[in-house]
Design a protein around this nucleic acid. Sequence first.
DNA 1: AGAGTAACCAAGCAAGCGCTAGTGTAAATA
DNA 2: TATTTACACTAGCGCTTGCTTGGTTACTCT
Lengths: 192, 192
Amino acid sequence: MNVMNASPRRKELTRLAAQLFVQEGFDRTTVRMLAQEMGIKSGSLFHHFKDKQEILAAVIEEGTQNALMIARKALDECDAEPEVRLRAMARAHLETLFTDRNAHVVALFEWRRLDPAASAHLSHLRDAYEALWVTVIDDALEAGLIHGDRFLVSRFVLGALNWTVRWYDPNGPRSPDDLADELVAMIMPTSA
Amino acid sequence: MNVMNASPRRKELTRLAAQLFVQEGFDRTTVRMLAQEMGIKSGSLFHHFKDKQEILAAVIEEGTQNALMIARKALDECDAEPEVRLRAMARAHLETLFTDRNAHVVALFEWRRLDPAASAHLSHLRDAYEALWVTVIDDALEAGLIHGDRFLVSRFVLGALNWTVRWYDPNGPRSPDDLADELVAMIMPTSA
DNA sequence: AGAGTAACCAAGCAAGCGCTAGTGTAAATA
DNA sequence: TATTTACACTAGCGCTTGCTTGGTTACTCT
């Protein structure tokens, strides 16, 4: 078994697995389907991954790491104005959601299939990401940019953003950035 | 096989199935688990339902029918003021979401497991429900109560509301009605 | 009493599941 | 040249899956 997590082959396999998990769901995706998609036999799969669970964990870890990177970069690159930061965060969220769409759909809808160990490890990553959101929302509230309960606002906003994977068509007329801006405008009285 | 959809026994079994589908997910719920939960043997299940798929369809149909009923009743019972109607619709949405929580969680997250025939039939029900939302949102927009694109606003609002099943704790301090009011307040500039 | 029917059970089939064991081979390393 | 490593293969084990079959109760209606 390959213990080196960063093997390029393993990364490619993870990408393909994410696609299949989205198409079929984790439970209905068999190791034989995964192997075929990867051009190998089912037994060979277990050279790269300890078991099926580990493939799921790899997919989710990939996506969450990317989300964290993109969000940090976006916040670093813009100034301290709360409105700009809020918009940047929303844009970053949708950017990662649709460039790594497969991984994120798996993370959002198959999280519960993780075994407790993997779930605990990945929860820390996700918490780090959500902490970014909380600071941005807090600043926006303090600046009087938006109003409401900080907890509820962040849940509502994240819910609205995450739900886009259910209806947004990347080939449509609207860009993810448009979506992000419209959502921010919707909750900002001053920008009417 | 029992063809009478409204058999009381069948309705009870549907309720129990919804609970298991939420706990384990549709794919991981075996007919043996379902049977045990119902206090019968696995073979007997197929006296009430043609196959496992039909159980899923029954669960989702139940939930969607209830949502439609509650929303219609809520709109009937309030006057024509757009703001009142918007709040009533949001409240109705969360009311049905948490009184029939199991059925709705299944509808939201296991819809794709439906076979094409069942999916087509149930899509009509869901469309009828969403049509109610569209009229309410349209009226609110026209009255200048909220602002933005009608399509995007309804998607964002529904996303924020549906996502509550992921984090809302019914035993917490906030009632579903509070949640609904806070969301409406969040997108309504005039109520700051 | 006899017929019909709804609800159940015991037993098991065929297919598919995740995963393992053991082997082959070409490239990298010593 | 000898040894190790990475990656793939074949074959199949042990188990679970959804579902079927054939038959048994218990109740209702004529």
